[in-house]
Design a protein around this nucleic acid. Structure first.
Length: 595
RNA sequence: GCGCUCGUAGCUCAGUAGGAUAGAGCGACCGCCUCCUAAGCGGUAGGUCAGGGGUUCGAUUCCCUUCGAGCGCGCCA
């Protein structure tokens, strides 16, 4: 439709240029927007305002000139000039109603668009270290990344969803050592658990599993465990040195093979827990990418070689540095440490290179706001390797506070006192959790109100939207019960009977679905869709209140209204599924359980 | 100290690739079930878009500045 209107305007403008009214050298960009209120018609363009300057005429005057040259269209009822010089286009009622037919025909393909023009992109999100279960802080990234991926896919991108598993490095050694220490404890040898070890209860569970499988095979005496280990912080020492000493002894005492056994059990247990949590949260990945893979292949070396080739590396204090300040970062970054080990940043560079070597044309990273310092160095690394920094995009999600009883829920991940994602899902349900995380803009701090998410009342937007869907199902059932079989063809042929104000509002609302999706995709903002669904639901409830379907005698009108209802249902179901929430057929708990 | 993100109604938040009278929900107040699910609908009240400057036909939106909030500034991962 917008295309059609643009063509009309283009013709009018070129006509005016030919007549010498407008200068020949202007090449206007024609923007059409859906109007905010219906008094302004269906679509509006600010063309005359943007032309005011180059032409040197009053915008309203220009608008009039253009309006006079517009040729008739079967879809346009009238064109008005309003405000400072907007051209408002009013569509014919017939044209507006076609959307019902179209939605019913296309089903969940309605709204598909080509905004992404088949660009192959990888969307990486969550990527939490596998050192413990996901907590509510990861939930926002998960819900956002998954919803955004769905929206981008619907908008014509080829999307690959990826989780980067940090299965390498010191933190993982600390994890394995923590498990081993708990294991020793379980065997009856008392150990003072290190301040910097992983405290959570899940570590003990994993240790129990290790003991069950291997018995006392990995047991050593207290003096062996603590041999040459510096004092812990609680005894006036350095907790970092203390834990490193323990890690060293763990590797030495267990030997490579046995250490790997403990390591792998710890990693696999936690990782499969993370996978299970995400799956139950309706978050699905196409790929779980192992950091270790970068080390075992030659990718890191090649990435470093690439930077070296261009003279972006230098040596200082025995370490190798990347000149990231040259590309706008605050500090230069170490790539290889004095002791010869590669830094985490080196893996990042290699991972970035790897993404483009795998043929992706764009890499989208979803980071928590605490990682914003990574943007500059990642873009710097891209420039250093001749990857267009425009092709990497980093989106930050702000933190979400949990609010319960009007108070913030305090959390600290260090002590292991946090609300896990699983607990949240068990508490409020997947639908509410998924929806609440994305109903606010990702770059806005948000309060996640647990009481509200749980409430099954009109205060809860998820239930409000789901209720609209359930209502439509209910009406449909009612029709069947009363043997008033719905006939879609009659409905389509009778769309001209949909003249009620509420019917028009609802049609207006459902016809903007494709544009909403494009906006959500363009601005990387799933919350745009969440808000839109609320609006659709509101228009439906309002329509439902005033336009009855079952208990009216006009068969044509009844079928037309049912078509409109089914079109609405289709959009709500599709929109909710993009956001990872379900569209139930009934809101009554007993019906939902038997589903 | 430097940097990043933000500041919109009593509360939680939309809106801003410069555009028309800044919108919802909740809370408050007033109405609507002999009628398809009242988990619903209709209405009223509520604003210096944090403050100040600038850019222009036009700024809540862009720029500068002040104030306030959150986060980040390792040869950790």
């Amino acid at each position: 439709m917008i295309k059609h209107l643009q063509e009309l305007l283009e013709k009018a403008v070129s006509c005016l240029q030919r007549d010498g009214v407008f200068p020949k050298d202007i090449n206007p960009v024609i923007n059409f927007e859906r109007t905010r209120s219906k008094e302004h018609g269906d679509f509006a363009t600010n063309l005359a305002l943007t032309l005011a300057k180059p032409i040197g005429k009053n915008p309203r005057e220009i608008a009039q000139l253009i309006a006079d040259k517009l040729i008739e269209s079967m879809h346009v009822e009238k064109v008005e000039i309003a405000g400072p010089g907007f051209l408002n286009f009013f569509l014919t009622n017939n044209c507006r109603r076609q959307v019902v037919k179209q939605v019913l025909k296309l089903g969940n393909k309605y709204g598909n668009n080509d905004f992404g023009s088949h660009k192959k992109i990888t969307v990486e999100f969550v990527s939490a270290n596998p050192t413990g279960p996901l907590h509510v802080g990861h939930g926002r990234g998960a819900a956002y990344g998954a919803s955004l991926s769905n929206i981008l896919e619907k908008s014509g991108y080829e999307v690959q969803r990826e989780y980067y598993v940090n299965d390498n490095g010191r933190q993982m050694d600390i994890l394995a050592t923590s498990v081993w220490l708990r294991y020793i404890e379980l065997c009856g040898v008392p150990v003072a658990f290190p301040d910097n070890g992983y405290q959570g209860n899940y570590i003990v569970e994993i240790a129990r599993f290790v003991r069950k499988k291997y018995g006392d095979k990995f047991l050593f005496t207290q003096s062996e465990v603590y041999e040459n280990v510096p004092e812990d912080e609680k005894h006036g020492g350095d907790k970092e040195k203390h834990i490193d000493g323990l890690v060293h002894n763990a590797k030495h005492l267990l030997g490579k093979d046995n250490y790997q056994k403990v390591f792998k059990i710890a990693l696999n247990t936690i990782l499969s827990g993370i996978k299970a949590d995400l799956e139950s949260f309706n978050v699905n990945y196409d790929s779980w990418f192992s950091e270790k893979q970068l080390h075992e292949s030659d990718t890191i070396d090649r990435a470093i070689a690439k930077l070296k080739e261009k003279n972006y590396l230098y040596e200082k204090d025995g370490a190798i540095w990347f000149m990231s300040t040259h590309f706008g970062d605050d500090l230069d970054r170490v790539v290889v440490r004095e002791n010869g080990q590669k830094t985490y940043f080196a893996s990042d560079i290699a991972y970035l290179l790897n993404k483009f070597e795998r043929g992706f044309e764009g890499a989208l990273y979803v980071f928590g706001a605490d990682h914003h310092g990574y943007i500059a160095r990642l873009k710097a690394a891209a420039k250093g390797m001749d990857i267009n920094p425009e092709d990497i995009e980093i989106v930050l999600t702000q933190f979400a506070n949990l609010v319960k009883g009007g108070k913030k829920v305090q959390m600290s991940s260090r002590s292991g006192k946090f609300v896990t994602l699983k607990e949240l899902i068990d508490d409020v349900g997947v639908d509410a959790a998924r929806f609440f995380y994305v109903m606010r803009s990702h770059d806005q701090h948000m309060d996640f109100d647990l009481d509200l998410a749980k409430s099954q009342t009109n205060e809860n937007p998820v239930f409000y939207i789901q209720y609209a869907h359930a209502r439509i199902c209910s009406v449909y059932k009612k029709l069947e019960e009363q043997a008033l079989q719905h006939n879609q063809e009659i409905g389509n042929a009778s769309l001209n009977l949909l003249t009620h104000e509420k019917e028009e509002d609802l049609m207006r609302s459902i016809s903007s679905y494709p544009e909403i999706l494009i906006t959500a995709a363009r601005t990387r903002s799933p919350h745009t869709l969440a808000n839109y669904l609320r609006e659709v639901a509101q228009n439906y409830h309002s329509f439902y209140d005033q336009c009855h379907i079952v208990n009216i005698t006009d068969e044509n009108l009844r079928n037309a209204r049912m078509n409109l209802s089914l079109a609405t249902k289709s959009i709500i179901a599709d929109g909710l599924s993009l956001l990872g929430a379900s569209a139930p057929e009934s809101m009554f708990a007993e019906d939902r359980d038997t589903k």
